[in-house]
Amino acid sequence: MLKRDLKAYIKNAQFSELCGHRIAHWQSLDFHKHPNKPTILFIHGFPSAAWDWYYQWQHLAKQYRLISLDLLGFGLSAKPTNYPYSLLEQADIITSLLSQLGVENYHILAHDYGDSVAQELLSRHETSGHSAKILSLCFLNGGVFASHHRPLLTQKLLKSRIGRVASYFMNKASLSRGFSKIFGVKSQPQDDEINILWQLIEHNNGKRVLPNLLSYIDERSEHDQRWTLSMVSTSVPLYFINGVQDPISGQHMLDHYIEIVPNPKTTALDVGHYPQLEAPQDVLDLYQRFLSEVIV
């Protein structure tokens, strides 16, 4: 179970060797005891972890089989140094986890970096008849279109040649300042949220891998056309919940999504980049309503 308390989060983590890496993951139900429960996969963003979903998890666990993981380089999972992190490998890891857990079909709720991983999974689903069927996909704020993603100066510095130096000087105070800029004016991050997210970043000296993880910005541009085609042509129900105050992927990203995706289903929230933390009940209510429409 994902809980607000970090100790419980760590205690409840399971670990599996997936694609050669030790990956932390969580599951809400024993699938074999509850075979008819629909499955939801949560995919988190940068630079956080599966912990982001703790509020929605507590409520959705009553109805669904929930699965989440700390992606490679994040949270409690392995953080190899000098490693060529890739969104495509993250999709491989998720595919392996779903296979290990016996998942045949599932819904996706994704955010930020996780949106790109979800887009890769959707593209594979559309082109190769992937064994696990995606039943629906809900995006929260993220760079679903590379051309409209506006990274922060901090991200640009971490991604640059001085990234290692910049990461060395990163601390909890700088994380708090950065999050204050991307959260909504009236939905600023709480101190305990910053504390937990910082501990998860620092776990296993995770600051050192942040520059390498940011290669995802270039990958988005590389695969943007293929991912966009999948979103435009898919029969999988899509939904975009967007915090419009987000300077990275807010109103401008939502506007482009509405312009590009046929018959777009969207909701604008008056918050920033982390709707699941800034407006947790709204996200829960909206997502449950979406699920009620797509689950027959």
Rank of each mutant, 00 (worst) to 15 (best):
K159P: 04
A173C: 03
V209I: 15
L229F: 01
S176T: 13
L210A: 06
Q155D: 10
R150W: 05
G206M: 04
F169M: 03
E193Y: 13
E219M: 10
K159V: 03
H223G: 03
Y168D: 04
E222V: 13
T154S: 01
R161G: 15
S233A: 12
M170V: 01
L213I: 06
M231P: 02
F179C: 00
E202F: 04
I162Y: 14
E193T: 11
W227I: 04
L214E: 02
L158K: 07
S215T: 14
R226K: 15
A173W: 06
L158M: 13
Q225Y: 00
Q188C: 03
K207S: 11
E222W: 06
T234M: 01
G163R: 08
A166G: 10
R226S: 11
W227E: 08
F183S: 06
L175P: 07
H149N: 11
N171A: 12
G178H: 05
E219Q: 15
L153S: 00
S176G: 09
L214G: 02
W227H: 15
D192N: 09
W227K: 12
D224E: 13
R220T: 03
L157N: 01
I196V: 14
P189S: 11
R177A: 14
L157I: 11
S187N: 15
T234R: 01
Q225A: 10
M170P: 02
D224M: 06
I201E: 08
Q190I: 05
A166P: 09
L210Y: 05
F169N: 02
T228G: 05
L197A: 14
S230C: 00
K156I: 10
M231Q: 09
I201V: 14
T228D: 04
A173E: 14
M170H: 07
W227Y: 15
Q190G: 09
S233E: 15
N212R: 01
V236E: 07
P151G: 06
F179R: 01
R177L: 14
A166D: 09
I196T: 14
H149A: 10
P151A: 07
L153R: 00
V185L: 12
E202H: 04
I217L: 15
N195P: 03
W227L: 09
M231K: 05
S187W: 05
I182D: 09
M231C: 05
I182W: 09
Q188G: 03
M170D: 04
G206S: 04
W227V: 04
K186S: 14
S174R: 13
H149Q: 08
R177E: 12
